[in-house]
Design a protein around this nucleic acid. Structure first.
Length: 430
RNA sequence: UCCGCGGUAGCUCAACGGUAGAGCGUCCGGCUGUUAACCGGAGGGUUGUAGGUUCGAAUCCUACCCGCGGAGCCA
């Protein structure tokens, strides 16, 4: 019977076939230990010289790391085996003999591993990270599906900037001039929210910023919910519930993977509602008390975020930023027009911002005024302004950065390991 | 773009003005329970590039290239 390695314990005593690749090999002359992986797990296959033909035994001795093979044998419980079960080999068939494999079971630098990202993905640690990523995405989208949000994706090729500030990737587009790769689906989400009430989009977004930090990619995946008839406080409740659902589901279903990457599980188990909600002004007071004063009106940088977030065991919202720090579409606070109804969520342990969002301007005249203040061409935003002409309502939305969320939940240093093929300022290969 | 660190064998690193080395991987040999197995042997180098100082440069100086970390910006 053909099985996957993750099912091996259910087939103890049975004759099975495993199709996979040679992960590693040890031998003591008359007995080979072949570590075979198939994507679902790793199992030790044991081949004794006496129990197979001499030609098969010799062929196994010549197997190279990552050679693909079919192994047939009996599953046996054995405390000496990594994983608790091993396979007594009866027959083995080589599908493809691998060339000498560049990633050896020793230390390698990040640069070398990134050059071999297409092969690095075969390692245990990367398997754990990719499974955690998949679970984060599944948990977040399932949460939104459960709460009545319709997935309605936004275009990737767009005619203009969503926010005039950040740099965009540009590409020729037939006779219509240049198109830009999207930096956010938000504007389209707002249109969709007026059509369906609650929506979200999920896909890659692009920022042509020359950022070289552990938190930045030029291509990253963002999950962006948007809801009509929603104001700031309710948005924070939704974001909080979603993050708790995501962390809880990863803890529940990907615990072994978290252990593989040596994540401190207690820190994740502390992620429970309610999250602290700090106004920008309160954040400044904390920075002042911590001896890192920041003048009012300045945006929080990486160091400031670390000071704020490390004071708490759980993610923390910072809301009501100065208007000049934020994008043109942010709704001003009616009691204090110099601040806007934004709220960013900072992950603990120094991971920084994983969510940015807030309440959008729903008043036509105010939005037009903001476009002028930001020197944005109004004619490009006519369809966006229409949303304020035809049944405008208070509405909120936010963007969850998938790679930053995965990096935080998995406890890894750099977002580049949180995506299969990272795109960085200096990396477009493989 | 700015600041800091770095580039030596396939990989990870040592040698810091006086003959360029180790571990791992590779290849050959040995070993019937290995756990990044172990033991013996072999092969492997224009020390990022170009110039300079010196009797002598991987080492000191200059320029450039590339990489890493951080800042700004953001998710």
């Amino acid at each position: 019977m053909r099985i996957r390695i993750e099912e091996a314990s259910a087939h103890a005593g049975a004759e099975v076939e495993i199709r996979g690749w040679l992960y590693h090999k040890r031998s003591s002359g008359s007995i080979h230990f072949l570590l075979v992986r198939d994507g679902s797990g790793v199992i030790q296959a044991v081949m004794a010289k006496q129990e197979v033909s001499p030609s098969l035994f010799a062929a196994a001795a010549d197997l190279t790391q990552e050679s693909s093979l079919l192994v047939r044998g009996t599953v046996r419980e054995d405390s000496r085996a990594p994983g608790g079960h091993e396979l007594t080999v009866r027959d083995l068939q080589v599908v493809g003999l691998a060339d000498p494999y560049p990633i050896t079971p020793k230390e390698h630098g990040v640069e070398f591993l990134m050059d071999h990202r297409h092969l690095w993905l075969r390692s245990r640690r990367q398997h754990a990270l990719m499974r955690i990523r998949a679970e984060v995405i599944r948990a977040a989208t399932e949460f939104l599906d459960r709460h009545g949000y319709l997935r309605m994706d936004a275009p990737i090729l767009t005619p203009a900037a969503v926010e005039g500030t950040t740099t965009l990737f540009e590409t020729p587009y037939f006779d219509l001039g240049n198109a830009f790769l999207t930096q956010s689906g938000q504007l389209y989400n707002e249109a969709a929210a007026s059509a369906f009430g609650r929506v979200y989009c999920f896909g890659p977004t692009f920022r042509a910023e020359k950022s070289k930090t552990r938190r930045h990619l030029t291509e990253f995946w963002m999950l962006e919910p948007e809801a009509a008839f929603m104001e700031l406080d309710e948005y924070m409740e939704v974001a909080e519930a979603m993050i708790c659902a995501v962390v809880g589901q990863v803890l529940d279903r990907r615990r072994l993977d978290l252990q593989e990457v040596e994540r401190n599980l207690a820190a994740l188990e502390a992620v429970q509602p309610p999250f602290p909600r700090l106004s920008y002004d309160e954040a400044l007071n904390r920075l002042h008390a911590a001896g890192k004063p920041l003048p009012w009106g300045e945006d929080l940088g990486g160091d400031e975020e670390t000071v704020i977030s490390s004071a708490f065991q759980r993610p923390v919202f910072v809301h009501r930023y100065p208007a000049k720090c934020k994008a043109f579409y942010m709704q001003p606070d009616r009691d204090r027009p110099d601040v806007v109804l934004s709220a960013d969520l900072l992950a603990p342990e120094g991971y920084g911002e994983i969510i940015g969002g807030g309440q959008r301007i729903h008043d036509l005249q105010l939005l037009q005024q903001r476009l002028r203040e930001h020197h944005l061409p109004e004619h490009v935003y006519q369809w966006y302004l229409d949303l304020r002409r035809y049944g405008s309502v208070p509405h909120c939305g936010f963007g969850l950065g998938i790679e930053r969320t995965v990096a935080w939940i998995a406890g890894i240093e750099h977002v580049r390991e949180a995506i299969p093929f990272p795109r960085l300022m200096n990396r477009l290969y493989p």
